[in-house]
């Protein structure tokens, strides 16, 4: 496969040149608009708190300072551990969730499955109605006893109906004939799923896998609810806690008339927030190109058939 997959190898006419020009301008402009604020965030994270609060953001650091990063990395061992927890969790969670969701989506996409609409509705319904935090919290803590247990971080994101339905739409794009051919060859359903459907689904698996990984990577909420042992904190929660504590504390000071509460601590908040964004974004940005190759080159059904 090469880059010309999508264009069928004929893209040399005037029409193609016009299209390319439009594409470069349009996508280039959007990419730039997306880049600039991020550059501002990065440069703010390397600025001093004082300069940011006086003159706002810029494209270059103002009054270069590593204060924010030294606050983030004040306890390097904790950060390293938090990173390890997050990486392992993201890895396991993504693989298990991706398998579970794809298998379910495969069944729901099969036209010869009698109750596929019923079950699709059964799953979709859960995105419309929910009982709120209290019963869920009771279930997790009082019945499943998952406080301070990594499963409390793994389970909540294991199954997403959105991903399920998106995956289902991708699978439905695979011609039925391929699946029936596999059945005629004597493949069982699991075998068909693994040897016929999975190879065809690479871009879809990469996409949904990316979304699942991002969800695990960014999740601090489950940790806030169920993890109180600071040795078990995932990265996002550790950092979230750090920044929001200072913020929330300052807010309370402001609303709290009493001077009994200790006077404000002088810590960076704005720049710390920016540094935090950079710290959590970094690894995913590095990972993204790996996923990207599935968007740059697709699959050819003919090749699979052959």
């Amino acid at each position: 496969m090469n880059d010309q997959t999508r264009t069928g190898g004929i893209s040399n006419g005037l029409d193609a040149k016009v299209l390319h020009a439009i594409s470069y301008v349009f996508n280039g402009a959007i990419a730039l608009v997306c880049l600039i604020p991020f550059v501002m965030v990065v440069s703010a994270s390397f600025s001093s708190e004082d300069a940011i609060s006086k003159t706002g953001f810029g494209l270059l650091p103002k009054d270069f300072s590593l204060e924010a990063y030294s606050t983030v990395f004040a306890e390097p061992m904790i950060i390293v551990r938090a990173y390890a927890v997050t990486v392992l969790l993201t890895l396991c969670g993504t693989l298990i969730a991706l398998f579970l969701q794809t298998m379910t989506a495969y069944v729901l996409s099969r036209k010869d499955f009698a109750w596929r609409n019923g079950f699709s509705f059964f799953f979709y319904f859960t995105t419309l109605f929910n009982g709120g935090l209290v019963p869920y919290y009771l279930l997790m803590t009082q019945y499943l006893h998952l406080k301070n247990n990594y499963l409390a971080l793994l389970l909540p994101l294991l199954f997403s109906v959105y991903n399920l339905l998106i995956m289902k739409s991708y699978i439905m794009a695979i011609p039925d004939s391929l699946i029936y051919a596999a059945k005629i060859d004597g493949c069982g359903e699991m075998r068909t799923l693994f040897s016929v459907v999975f190879p065809m689904l690479k871009p879809a698996l990469a996409t949904v896998g990316l979304f699942i990984a991002l969800a695990y990577w960014n999740d601090w909420y489950s940790a806030m609810l169920y993890i109180s042992n600071d040795k078990m904190y995932p990265l996002q929660y550790f950092l979230y806690n750090k920044v929001n504590n200072i913020e929330a504390y300052k807010k309370i000071l402001e609303s709290h008339a009493g001077s009994g509460v200790a006077a404000a601590i002088n810590m960076p908040t704005q720049t710390l927030k920016m540094a935090l964004t950079v710290v959590v974004t970094g690894p995913i940005i590095l990972l993204y190109p790996l996923v990207q190759k599935y968007y740059v080159q697709g699959i050819t059904i003919g090749a699979v058939k052959g």
Binding site: P203, T207, L210, G298, I301, G302
Partner: peptide, 14 residues
């Protein structure tokens, strides 16, 4: 746009 990219990538070249 990634979702749409994946959809385009799933189209048969033929």
């Amino acid at each position: 746009s990634v979702l749409y990219l994946a959809a385009i990538m799933g189209i048969d070249t033929e």
